[in-house]
């Protein structure tokens, strides 16, 4: 089993819903983004193309971050998900330097809040209890592993059942993001990748990303 994503770039409208869903799901502090939408332009007038790329940790099958981590804080599960054990991270930032996709961030200011000088919002208060992030450690997208694990335990199928699927995937209003098992030949994600010629970003980095993009 190896979880992966396929993102249809032409379907993405750049609404940032996936970014907000990710922030809400994981109670991410200000300035921490596990999921980003990059919007730009390419070409010269009148042949200009708008580019919208939804990027996050590529959950590489051969991740550079796992190899360089000196403490074993960055780990890879059997299903391919790469995650950081906050209690083991020393904050050396080697993984941040080694990630060719620049998908990792250091959560530095544990006191940062969305409305400085005011009381914490209810969401922030709940987040500090339900999903406490420890400052001084590296943080990144974990493919909503908690949702996947709970879903599998309940007999659900990630990528098919909403409750077992990452927040960014189910929140996308245009269904631009597909999720599923890359090791399952008949899965929907493999069909989409095959039929629509999905490709990872920068395969030359040789980390075997689990996220495919469809132009």
């Amino acid at each position: 089993m190896r979880w992966g994503m396929a993102i249809e770039l032409k379907r993405c409208v750049g609404c940032y819903e996936c970014v907000l869903a990710c922030k809400a799901e994981h109670f991410l502090p200000p300035e921490i983004f596990w999921n980003r939408v990059l919007i730009g332009e390419s070409g010269k007038y009148p042949n200009v193309t708008k580019l919208i790329y939804n990027v996050r940790c590529n959950q590489c099958d051969d991740p550079a971050c796992v190899k360089v981590c000196p403490t074993g804080a960055t780990q890879q599960r059997e299903d391919g998900i790469v995650w950081v054990d906050e209690d083991k991270c020393v904050g050396c930032r080697y993984c941040m330097v080694a990630c060719p996709y620049q998908a990792r961030q250091m959560y530095e200011d544990g006191n940062a809040q969305y409305f400085p000088g005011q009381e914490l919002t209810e969401h922030e208060k709940i987040g500090k209890e339900l999903y406490p992030h420890k400052p001084g450690v590296v943080t990144k997208c974990v493919f909503c592993k908690e949702r996947i694990d709970a879903g599998l335990e309940a007999g659900l199928t990630p990528g098919v059942d909403r409750e077992a699927t990452p927040a960014c995937v189910i929140s996308c209003p245009t269904k631009a993001i597909h999720f599923g098992d890359l090791d399952e030949p008949n899965s929907d994600i493999n069909r989409v990748i095959k039929e629509k010629h999905g490709h990872p970003f920068h395969p030359e980095f040789d980390t075997k990303p689990s996220i495919y993009y469809i132009d």
């Binding site: 796992v66 000196p70 020393v90």
Partner: peptide, 16 residues
């Protein structure tokens, strides 16, 4: 950022 955990830095000599 967490210097007190420095002793953990010896556990991955195989790859790091």
């Amino acid at each position: 950022t967490h210097p007190m955990r420095f002793w953990r830095m010896v556990v991955k000599p195989g790859t790091s």
